[in-house]
Design a protein around this nucleic acid. Structure first.
Length: 122
RNA sequence: CCAGACGGCCGGACGGCCGCCGCCGCAGGCGAACGCGGCGGAGGAAAGUCCGGGCUCCACGGGAGAGAGGGUGCCGGCUAACGGCCGGCGGGGGCGACCCCAGGGAAAGUGCCACAGAGAACAGACCGCCGACCCGGCAGUUCGCUGCCCGGCCGGCAAGGGUGAAACGGUGCGGCAAGAGCGCACCGCGCUCCCGGCAACGGGGGCGGCACGGUAAACCCCACCCGGAGCAAGACCGAAUAGGGGCGACCGCGGACGGGCAACCGUGCCGCAGGGGGCUCUCCCGCCCUGUCGCCCGGGUUGGUCGCGCGAGGCGCCUUGCGAGAGGCGUCCCAGAGGAAUGGCCGUCCAGGCCCGCAAGGGCCGGACAGAACCCGGCUUACAGGCCGUCUGGCACC
RNA sequence: GACCCCUUCGUCUAAUGGUUAGGACACCAGCCUUUCACGCUGGUAACACGGGUUCGAGCCCCGUAGGGGUCA
């Protein structure tokens, strides 16, 4: 992830991942993944609803998810899929190493193995 | 020292590693990305959206019109403006520092004032007080009558009781059959004159003789203010599709053209009238546009640039004003974008809380409210903890 | 960004500024019934919060909180 990862922005993109992708809930977040059948780097989207808290809490939640994804994907890049990370109430207070572990286990559970080709080998 | 009042300010600090956004420079290269370096990167409320403006577009004919609607309301000032702020006036609260409240009109009109109470708005008379007369009783008697009491009736009165949030002034003295502003003094109220003040208002004199209940954050009257929309405003560039179609309802006169010998018929081609629409709340005149209205079908766009941060700007000093403020000089350039950057982890310190301990000290927890979206000025609301200044009351000492 | 509406017993709702805030369903107790249900009787239970106007506020005014909705 030498170049900054592409972000999902439009409502339609989020809906497509939610409807057709795989869902993996873990303690610190919920991951949705949808394979794209190409070898471009993974695109990321973040969702934190108003139920989680006010704007400050939502910002903190999203930034921790962003940082966890950055650190993990730097070690183990993923390609060929769209990922949506959904923040939940526990995201803000979870210890940061545990949050990275959560994300790693969620990627495995969604069938997105590291080293690129995992997205298609599920 | 204790208790309190008011005003202002801060909103953790420093560092390390890995990162993010914008701009600039270097290198690179067709261009871009990556790389290196530099600068900048959330708040006092950025919030709620309760007000006021800037800016942009629309309308800018009679028009800053009339009406409707909304808002404001002691006086003077500040300000671009305000429902904001400052100073003052009046009322209320507090020993005090100080705090809270608000326009005028109820003698323009309308409405309402429950319950209680005799009576609630051109006052009224339940208990009551007083006088004359009549009946009865008791006592006295100089046998004429007198005094007291009960009741009836006629008349006078509104002091006292009682009801209420509120009862045609309050207190005292005189006066009277009993009473009453009936008279007087003081207070209140109204009118008037003088003085002070720019004014709100305050002070004083005289007169009146009490007459004018409350509620306009009830309707309303008066004065003043308000054109509408909002950066998804708006401007430019580019891309794409189209310069639409169908059904139903309604439509007068004239011309022109076509048909017909003619009467007449047809035609959204033209004019007028009408209808409809627009002139950003409504109406009149005026102007402009147009077949109109309803339903349905079909088609395109989700790109870029600007707007976009030099501003009623921040900081410091000086002058001026009681103050809100105003003026001058110097200095600084200080986030900006797109669903959106300002982060993650760690260490030390400064505050804070809890636990152990006689103490020294040690351990644990741990940063309040809250995130810019065109920009300013206010208001309101949320907020751990802390700092500074002025003042008041009390206690002690000198 | 520009606005609008609502908040009353557990639930759904009423109320000229004036007694103890009414009704329905629900809940509780009793009666009826062999028992349950139905029915009858009685009871518990609410004006979102803070100020103000008024003699008096669920109602009027201001602010706050929560909920819902409209337009672009």
């Amino acid at each position: 992830m030498a170049p900054a990862p592409q972000r999902l922005k439009r409502r339609a993109e989020f809906l497509r991942v939610a409807q057709r992708g795989r869902k993996a809930p873990v303690a610190g977040l919920v991951l949705q993944a949808l394979e794209r059948h190409d070898d471009a780097p993974a695109r990321l989207g973040f969702t934190v609803t108003k139920k989680v808290g006010n704007a400050v809490v939502r910002n903190r939640t999203r930034r921790r998810l962003k940082e966890a994804a950055r650190l993990l994907l730097r070690e183990a890049p993923v390609a060929g899929c769209d990922l949506v990370l959904i923040g939940r109430g526990s995201t803000r207070r979870r210890a940061f190493p545990a949050l990275i572990d959560d994300l790693r286990r969620a990627l495995e559970r969604a069938g997105v193995a590291p080293f690129g080709e995992g997205g298609a080998a599920r």
